[in-house]
């Protein structure tokens, strides 16, 4: 029994930030909250931390209702986006700071802080002021400090967003190793899909204050349950379609997208949103796009094309480099949702 959020609503003024979010985090699991800016993922993290009051709903930790518990009573550590390291303290003092609230002697506090710094490979920088360590080092100190009170849950708010790609990768691995070693649950907010998929067991995709889907990276890629997840997670191209008895047509035109597909059980005279990847296209359809440029991906040619104002990537199935292409979409490799399913 880990952390549960049930039907959580957060309203600020007239604006609803969270609109009935449900989330289950099993003990010892690493979950990433993924979504575009402003979707409410940081607010949800703050709700879990106890820094944000809920308008409705409840949060449970190990079966106990902690909705109105103070942040310090939740046994969780947090790494903020800004890291929030105290600039007036040096590295070891920052890590020792939360230990002042535990019943420890000064030497015990120092020992624990040093062992945490050792875990994040920062022990040799223990006396450095915060102004004299790099971004990656500061990240490590922030993680060590968040773990100082031995929390059962670690909350990370876009912790790697300010780091370069190489350092980000290194720290992701490190945080995963630490999480496995300590056996704690981790909730990480990110807008970087790659980060979410490489580091976590489970990913919760959020949009517009709602949890769209929670699943493993594989589930999200292969079985998106909403058009938002299909588009956001797979970074797929989109076509607005209309289904008739003989096939799927581009909305408002007679351009065929795909012949009828009985296995999908589509309703006639209904609008659909079709999300397809670069590989799902065929030469049999009548969707017209203007080719902008071509790129070779080593054995595969791709066209960057303009379709109704969108920039799309499709495989080059044509000979040469035509200026305009007509293509269709293989529905078996795409995702289709009723148009009114989208928010």
């Amino acid at each position: 029994m880990g952390l549960e959020a049930r039907d959580v609503f957060v309203t600020m003024g007239q604006t609803a930030i969270l609109k009935g979010v449900d989330l289950d985090i099993a003990p010892g699991k690493f979950i990433a909250l993924l979504g575009p800016s402003g979707c409410g993922k940081t607010t949800l993290l703050r709700v879990l931390a106890g820094l944000q009051e809920v308008s409705n709903g409840a949060v449970f930790f190990e079966g106990k209702n902690i909705t109105s518990a103070k942040p310090a009573e939740r046994n969780c550590g947090m790494v903020f986006q800004s890291l929030a390291l105290f600039p007036h303290l040096n590295v070891v003092e920052n890590v020792m700071f939360p230990l002042k609230k535990l019943d420890l002697t000064k030497s015990e506090r120092l020992d624990r802080a040093l062992s945490l710094l050792e875990m994040v490979h920062m022990v040799e920088f223990r006396d450095r002021p915060m102004s004299r360590i790099s971004g990656g080092q500061a990240q490590r100190v922030a993680i060590a400090r968040a773990l100082a009170q031995e929390p059962k849950l670690l909350l990370l708010d876009e912790p790697f967003s300010a780091l370069d790609a190489e350092l980000r990768e290194e720290l992701r691995t490190e945080i995963r190793v630490i999480q496995r070693k300590l056996g704690i649950s981790v909730v990480m907010v990110t807008h970087d899909q790659n980060e979410a998929f490489t580091v976590s067991d489970v990913v919760g995709v959020m949009n517009n204050g709602k949890m769209e889907q929670v699943g493993t990276p594989d589930d999200l890629m292969s079985k998106p349950t909403s058009s938002f997840v299909a588009k956001f997670v797979g970074q797929r191209n989109h076509i607005s379609c209309f289904y008739r008895a003989d096939g799927l047509y581009e909305a408002g035109t007679n351009n065929l997208v795909s012949p009828a597909c009985s296995s999908l059980n589509l309703s006639p005279y209904t609008k659909y949103d079709l999300y397809y990847s670069s590989e799902a296209i065929t030469t049999s359809g009548q969707i017209e796009a203007e080719a902008l440029y071509y790129r070779n991906l080593g054995g595969r040619n791709e066209i960057c094309a303009r379709y109704k104002g969108q920039t799309i990537w499709i495989d080059n199935l044509w000979s040469g480099q035509p200026h305009r292409v007509s293509f269709g979409v293989d529905l078996s490799e795409s995702f289709i949702f009723r148009a009114n399913d989208e928010d």
Binding site: A49, P71, A72, S82, A84, K101
Partner: peptide, 22 residues
């Protein structure tokens, strides 16, 4: 940075302690 005081609050420091210590 408002998260400095949020951090201290999460560690169990009261608002007055946060004012004096942070």
């Amino acid at each position: 940075d408002g998260s400095l005081s949020d951090t201290a609050r999460m560690m169990g420091f009261s608002k007055i302690e946060v004012f004096w210590r942070v």
